[in-house]
């Protein structure tokens, strides 16, 4: 049952990325390109996505456990650290460079052509490189 709901959630996510145009790298880069021909679409996608999620967090606050059991995620840490900043800056730089982030990368694999597989493979490589680097960092931060 957990897998079925995970599949439904992923399906909604994938369908949303698809119909919103967020797998079109020109729309993503167009939103980031405030000095060019600015494309506002991404702001509507982000705004639209936050509405159901904000409602969901309200429901979480009134429930003891998830519908399928287990526990809800703990409250987010309030501490900011260099890891969060550095990682996000690196992510943003790559996001602007190709116009792809992890969700749309997966959603577009079936129709984006070989370029999307090249990006995906490199992204997997970057993800695999992260744990060894993190382990060597002097002051490891507790995982969220």
């Amino acid at each position: 049952m957990r897998n079925l709901f995970a599949f439904v959630a992923g399906g909604l996510f994938g369908a949303g990325l698809f119909v919103s145009g967020m797998t079109d790298t020109a729309k993503v880069q167009g939103w980031l390109d405030i000095f060019g021909d600015w494309d506002p679409t991404l702001a509507f996608v982000m705004g639209g996505a936050i509405i159901p999620m904000a409602i969901a967090w309200r429901i979480v606050a009134r429930r003891a456990t998830p519908v399928l059991g287990g526990t809800f995620p703990p409250p987010p840490p309030v501490r900011l650290d260099s890891r969060l900043a550095l990682g996000s800056i690196m992510f943003g730089a790559g996001w602007g460079l190709a116009g792809l982030c992890p969700g749309p990368s997966v959603a577009s694999l079936s129709y984006g052509g070989v370029e999307h597989w090249v990006f995906f493979a490199a992204m997997i490589g970057g993800m695999l490189a992260a744990p060894p680097v993190l382990a060597r960092m002097q002051r490891p931060v507790a995982a969220e």
Binding site: R83, L84, A85, L86, G87, S88, I89, M90, F91, G92, A93, G94, W95, L97, A98, L100, C101, P102, S105, E115, V118, F119, F120, A121, A122, M123, I124, G125, G126, M127, L128, A129, A130, P131, V133, L134
Partner: peptide, 15 residues
């Protein structure tokens, strides 16, 4: 594509 993919993969896991 490769540079961007590496940055996105590595950066999102660090962050």
């Amino acid at each position: 594509l490769i540079a961007a993919g590496l940055l996105v993969g590595f950066g999102t896991r660090i962050a």
